[in-house]
Design a protein around this nucleic acid. Structure first.
Lengths: 258, 258
DNA sequence: CGTTCACTTGACCAACATCAAATATGGTGG
DNA sequence: CCACCATATTTGATGTTGGTCAAGTGAACG
């Protein structure tokens, strides 16, 4: 896959990395200092957030990771994927989930940029905050996927999300992008079995809307796909249309008594 | 249900409300000022977080609410329940979900306590941060429920969560507590149909482990229930046992090529 | 070349959804 | 206190989605 392809352009506009001055905008000295601080993790490694240094705030430069939990009996649930430009930590959710590298990973610590007196402090803080909001929104989306969407919808919905996120960091070419995921990982993310993921992909492929082969995904008619999968892009969220039914929620109007 | 029952003791130790000095510990004058600022919402109302006043930070004093989203075709997904002592907003997740009151609701704004110079500032900020961490953890739990647990496990797991949270604010008597929820709301939270929720509850009742009647839930052997539902209490989370399989995650070790 | 890992397929089964109707339950107005 | 009504809960019959088991295929890597 060439790690280079995946990392290329990861410092897209608005991301934490660009706020740190890693992109083309920064002066050469700054960029060199940036890369000197990059850490690398092998695929499969568990990325630990050293609790003793709370101000440490890792950001992914290249590669993919995922957040997950494994139940005592072996069942796995993946909570989401971390892409280039994403911060590794939530609000600091230590103990409630693990972060595992899915590919070779390059990360930097954005913590120093939050120190008093750093000229980029404001921009980095803003970018981090925006990223946290988006992350929360993604968790809601994921909840909707698993709670209320069918298998086909789930797959399309997730692919659309990944496509949109990768697009923002310049990792989508035309209608195609690469995902370093096995069908098994897909299954663990979407709460389905590998076999059923496989059949669902086959079905989507047959319908011509989605093609996944050798780690390259192509989404031909994204707006149509978005409609069938109830996908709502990140930039188009008003709270109003989220409840515009005559009957938002059947509120219990009975008074419970012992 | 007597709103009074539900609100009683809601300012348990460690909560935001107790940090604000609403409990028995505070002086009378403070408590009176606290109650003067309480706002009320009717059941079914959508609690809006006025975007123009970002520093507004509502906390529930009494009653239940839920966070949810409704899809264009009417499918509903509830993301979680908000109980007395909980802050209404996430990190400020405007637009990605709605908050709806499930009962009559009493809320206060903890924003003023975060102003510079307030003597309780530190304590309130700490409590808010702790609440945010817990909330994130609950989202993960919910994801696991819907992705990897069976219907029976989901119900038990959610009931255990609610029980533990209510216990912390003094709303559990013995093994029993009250929930102002219909089975339909339960279904929307757990991604199941009402009918199947009903049958699952019946089954649990028959097994003697759980009894739900008239809005009162009784969990007899909680530690056994926790075992069967893969429930992990909030206080016992180490990250280690979360991945202690020989094979944490099958990492794609094949290099995808176009 | 054999081994390993991922993907694919078929046969069968269980969990859960859907549809429709009956039966509580509690609130309300007489 | 009773009859009535709207809401919730419960149940049965039936269909669909997705899981499980097992076996086979295909591609990379040593």
């Amino acid at each position: 896959m060439t790690q280079e392809d995946i990392s290329a352009g990861a410092s897209g506009a608005g991301s934490i990395l660009s706020a740190m001055g890693a992109g083309q905008g920064g002066d050469a000295e700054n960029v060199r200092a940036f890369w000197r601080r990059v850490e690398r993790w092998p695929a499969g490694a568990q990325v630990r957030q050293d609790a003793s240094r709370a101000e440490r705030q890792l950001v992914i430069v290249s590669g993919w990771a995922c957040e997950l939990r494994i139940l005592p009996d072996g069942r796995r649930q993946i909570f989401g994927f971390l892409l280039p430009g994403d911060p590794v930590d939530g609000c600091g959710s230590v103990g409630s989930r693990a972060v595992v590298a899915l590919t070779r990973l390059e990360v930097v610590d954005s913590g120093p940029h939050l120190a008093h007196g750093c000229e980029r402090r404001e921009a980095v803080a803003r970018a981090r905050h925006a990223a946290a909001l988006e992350r929360e929104r993604r968790l809601y989306d994921h909840l909707v996927r698993m709670g209320r969407l069918t298998a086909k919808e789930r797959v399309v919905h997730l692919l659309l999300e990944l496509c949109q996120r990768l697009e923002r960091v310049g990792l989508v070419k035309g209608d195609s992008f690469k995902i370093p995921l096995t069908q098994e990982i897909f299954a663990d993310a979407l709460g389905l079995s590998v076999v059923h993921i496989n059949r669902t992909l086959k079905e989507l492929r047959r319908a011509g809307s989605v093609s996944i082969r050798m780690g390259t995904v192509t989404l031909t008619d994204r707006s149509r796909l978005a409609a069938v999968a109830c996908y709502r892009r990140q930039d188009e969220d008003a709270i109003e249309p989220m409840l515009d039914r005559r009957e938002p929620l059947p509120i219990p109007h009975r008074t419970f008594a012992a």
